[in-house]
């Protein structure tokens, strides 16, 4: 329902006509904006809008509960026109930066400025952490210490070495992978039994990368996945920790999947990435995605790398680190 807004009369240079604000809703701010554009019959660059209500963000910011609500109108034309070109460009940059598409709540400046110092800082931390660790570990029993120390060291080392997401880790397991897979399977089965859900558990070693995948199959396993996979995530973390404690093994990545949930989610994320990449190519503008876990970010990086015309960078710090897809 279009409504005249009191502020409209104060706007400079609206030519005396009534300024129409429209209020629209959508599952995302973007959808609400689309609805507003449709109502106004103009292009995205011609409107300005304010967010009345943020959507409750869900998976990739796509599926959520409450709707987004925005108010939009066609930008008034200012009478004094010093340099229309610059004005327009500024407006666009601002929008890109502020992540008007609901991506930029953690809003920081420009990604490229930050990327370098960030890596540096991490590298620095890594050194400090390792040294401190070794000091503290002196004289303690061999196995748990080793596990603990290396577990901590691994993460920073990864950042330092590659500066990239989820890069392949060095394989240095003294404990045979098969043994770890077995431990993972036994522990997972125990947890599932405690849940009281009948299900099959099978751990397998993926031949090409040596990762362990624990596959849980059965009926009605929604409980094990949880909202947005949170329960599954937690279960996986538990399995990893326990296996590392029990076997002293590390450097082996253990994945837990329930009824093919991860595969499905990955497919959805890949499709989503291609979608966004297409839009980036078409509009020539950066697009920041919702913050995601490192695994998800890697999927995005990998998929985008195969698409000509776009490149990706990660910016921000966990847990709000996010991928930005931009024109190459």
């Amino acid at each position: 329902m279009p409504s005249d807004h009191p502020r409209a009369n104060n706007d400079a240079g609206n030519g005396g006509g009534d300024m129409e604000w429209v209020e629209t809703t959508g599952r995302t701010i973007e959808e609400a904006l689309d609805a507003a554009l449709d109502r106004l019959g103009v292009h995205e660059e011609e409107v300005e809008y304010s967010v009345v209500a943020e959507p409750r963000s869900g998976l990739f910011g796509r599926f959520g509960g409450s709707e987004a609500r925005i108010r939009a109108r066609v930008k008034p034309i200012s009478r004094e026109k010093p340099n229309p070109q610059r004005r327009r460009r500024t407006a666009r940059t601002e929008r890109a930066r502020s992540g008007g598409r609901g991506a930029g709540r953690g809003g920081r400046g420009d990604g490229s400025e930050r990327a370098v110092p960030k890596t540096d800082a991490d590298g620095g931390n890594a050194v400090v952490a390792t040294v401190a660790d070794e000091d503290a570990d002196d004289g303690e029993p061999e196995r748990p210490v080793g596990a603990k120390r290396r577990r901590r060291r691994r993460k920073p080392a990864r950042v330092e070495a590659t500066g990239d997401e989820g890069a392949a880790m060095e394989r240095e397991a003294e404990v045979p992978i098969e043994e770890q897979a077995e431990a993972a399977e036994i522990f997972t089965r125990g947890v599932i039994e405690a849940f009281g859900t009948p299900a099959q558990v099978e751990a397998q070693v993926t031949p090409d990368d040596g990762n362990v995948t624990v596959e849980i199959t059965g009926e009605n396993l929604g409980l094990l996945v949880g909202p947005k996979g949170a329960t599954l995530q937690a279960l996986e973390e538990l399995v990893r920790t326990v296996v590392q404690r029990q076997t002293g093994g590390h450097g082996v990545r253990i994945n837990v999947d329930v009824a093919g949930y991860r595969a499905k989610r990955r497919a959805a994320l890949e499709e989503f990435t291609r979608d966004v990449a297409r839009r980036v190519i078409e509009t020539g503008r950066d697009h920041a995605l919702e913050p995601m876990s490192s695994g998800d970010r890697k999927v995005v990086h990998d998929v985008a790398a195969e698409i000509e015309g776009v490149e990706t960078i990660s910016e921000g710090e966990d847990p709000r680190r996010r991928v930005v897809i931009r024109p190459a």
């Binding site: 129409e20 019959g41 292009h43």
Partner: peptide, 28 residues
């Protein structure tokens, strides 16, 4: 942008019709 792109497609005397906000303003 619309006007510039459209001009190349029009023959002499051709018309360009563009949707506008419900309260159209000529100064656009």
């Amino acid at each position: 942008v619309t006007a510039e792109c459209a001009a190349g497609f029009l023959r002499a005397g051709g018309r360009l019709v563009v949707s506008e906000p419900p309260e159209p303003r000529a100064e656009r």
